[in-house]
């Protein structure tokens, strides 16, 4: 031991040392400049996004807000602009999104837990993984056609017709891949040492997942879920295909019966207003409808943020 120590010592103060210092060109000025430049660039990129969002919001609200009133929110569709409102579509959209969340969150989280925590790395799981990524990239209208064949007309089981449940199931197919991917990503970010620590105490995989892995992954997973559900809220094409009504002259009842009745949705209603003959529809009602939809979206997002912060604070 002492031998090797002296060897290191002589090598450290060897004759080659002083020249070694010049082996590095002094480049710190350039590199610091590059660093500053990059900081400016990424800050600008971030602000670009925020500014675009702000402009969009201001524009939408300026055009639409004056026309959002109690009458608009509580009235059904009508051919006379003075009597028309978004109530039916609003209720339809809210029911759709709640139902879609109730269907996709348990299934999506369950599938992600299986793939990430239980299934090994084998041909089957890799095939599933590739398939899910591809499904997430499929255009939404394709899901509409699938939903039409599978739920509305009935491929395997008898068709249910163009009811709310069929619409929600179709939207669920659409968002499920995204929810699975987001949840898996969040689960993967939890360090393996936490799982090992739990298992080494004599816990089962499920106990470790339930008490340590899922709570740590939840905030990340929640973000992905909300993005996916927001996308579903704004979808028009698949809902038209599966038979949502474009002209909501009725509102689904706020009861389980709604599942089996017909329904409208905000984006379809807005589209319908825009293409109507009388200009008030396009210039007043459509912008007002967009404001309502934006508010619903922002509400959904803020619920997620509140949930996430509460969860993080608790731990």
């Amino acid at each position: 031991m002492s031998e090797s120590q002296t060897e290191v010592a002589t090598r450290g103060s060897g004759p080659g040392e002083p020249e070694d210092k010049t082996a590095f060109k002094n480049t710190s000025n350039n590199r610091n400049l590059t660093d500053k430049l990059f900081t400016v660039l990424v800050t600008a990129a971030a602000f670009f996004g925020i500014v675009v969002l702000a402009v969009l919001l201001v524009d939408v609200f300026r055009d639409g807000l004056p026309f959002v009133d109690g009458q608009f929110l509580t009235s059904l569709s009508s051919i006379t602009p003075e009597n028309a409102g978004v109530y039916g579509a609003l209720v339809g959209s809210i029911l759709l999104i709640v139902l879609t969340a109730l269907i996709t969150v348990p299934i999506g989280v369950g599938a992600a837990i299986y793939l990430e925590e239980y299934a090994g790395d084998n041909f089957f799981t890799r095939a599933v993984e590739v398939t899910i990524s591809n499904l997430a990239a499929v255009p939404s209208i394709i899901y509409g056609i699938l939903g039409l064949g599978l739920f509305v007309n009935g491929l395997i089981v008898p068709g249910m017709g163009p009811i709310l449940l069929a619409g929600a199931l179709t939207l669920s197919l659409l968002v499920l891949p995204v929810i699975i991917i987001a949840t898996r990503e969040a689960l993967r970010a939890v360090p393996g040492s936490v799982r090992e620590g739990g298992i080494a105490l004599g816990a089962t995989r499920w106990e470790v997942t339930r008490d340590h892995v899922l709570p740590s992954a939840l905030p990340g997973a929640l973000t992905g879920m909300i993005l996916a559900l927001s996308r579903a809220l704004g979808e028009t094409a698949p809902l038209i295909v599966v038979g949502a009504v474009t002209f909501a002259t009725f509102a689904p009842p706020i009861s389980p019966e709604a599942l089996f009745g017909r329904y409208g949705a905000l984006p379809i209603q807005i589209y319908d207003y825009i293409q109507r003959f009388r200009p008030e529809f396009k210039d007043e009602l459509a912008p007002a409808g967009i404001v309502v939809m934006m508010v619903v979206l922002l509400l959904v997002n803020s619920v997620a943020i509140v949930l996430r912060n509460r969860w993080q604070a608790r731990r």
Partner: peptide
Amino acid sequence: RRRIGMVFQKPNPFS
């Protein structure tokens, strides 16, 4: 594993 416990190289407390 309950009867034979294990402590790892890197501390891994739960959050």
